[in-house]
Amino acid sequence: MRKPDSLSLLLFVRSWGIVILFALLWGAFSIWGFPIFGTFVNFSVILQGAAISTIFAAAIAMGVFSGVLDLSVPGTAALSSVLLAKCLLSGVPMWLSFVVAIAAAVVVGLFNSFFTLRGINPLAVTIGTLSITTGAAALITTGPPLYGFTPMDWLATNLYFGLPAMFYVALVIYIIGTVFLTQTRGGGRFMAAGGNAEALRRSGVNANLYKVLGFVLSAGLAGVAGIVTTAYTTQGNPAAATDSLFTGLTAVALSGISLAGGRGSLPKVMVGALVIAEITSILNIKNIQPFWGIVITGALLIGALYLEMTIQKQVSKRVVEAKNAERQASHLAETAAINIQKEAK
């Protein structure tokens, strides 16, 4: 009754499409960008270019998984960035400066969740917060970027085993995040809160706690992105990197989920971010205007969501067909049973 072939093909595309796309682009660009693109050095360069946007993507993804699109991420990152720079310039020890930067981000997350849980639309809340944090960051620096503090190459461009430090930061985030989401009770409930918070609440779990966690993780990761950005650019820049929203969101969409919450996988988000980095790299190598990269990112975002919607519709249709067949079967069984009872009488 089910059509296993076409259904499982659709599910396969949804599950593995992004990995296939990455591999296909890698092959095609290696030929097109020969001999530069396919080298290990270029791979390392791609990872360096992708690191920050990958961390931003994790921040956006955590929000989306928990059921909200956190638009304040770039502002939070800018705030963390200038706070870190300001602390370092004032002679605060480095570890404490990091703590300050992350703590500020966590406060932003709590702020967002406070107003969202009271019923204000999260898009409106996080846009408001984006404005507040960007303004606050500029007030702290009084305008121009802050620089002149101790370089932090060990966190940014230094190579370990041929790969840049900042990529390892992203990698650690993704590994811890994936273990949390897939292996722990908290992670399962976190996803459930994004999918059906009311069901979680009715199962006796404090669902709001996990909603708050979504905002806090999103903001905290934005803070990390701000720190790495500061280390990489050697300045505390109050200008919010709003393009990080585009790439982050596109990476999440490329991972094959609708933005409805409750589903998703971090490793695929990472591959999504790497796909965008691949494209940026080939444009660079071929000397094509980087603005094309921005155009392509937007097109990928919409295209990926459109594809996901089409697949979801197909899947639902198949499942409904299967359910109808089943219902018909049970109806038949019922009629048969009634007939048997009648005959018995």
Binding site: M191, A192, N196, G262
Partner: peptide
């Protein structure tokens, strides 16, 4: 309680 809308988390 078994709820009329079942209160299931669809994706899980």
């Amino acid at each position: 309680m078994v709820y009329q809308d079942l209160a299931l988390v669809d994706a899980q």
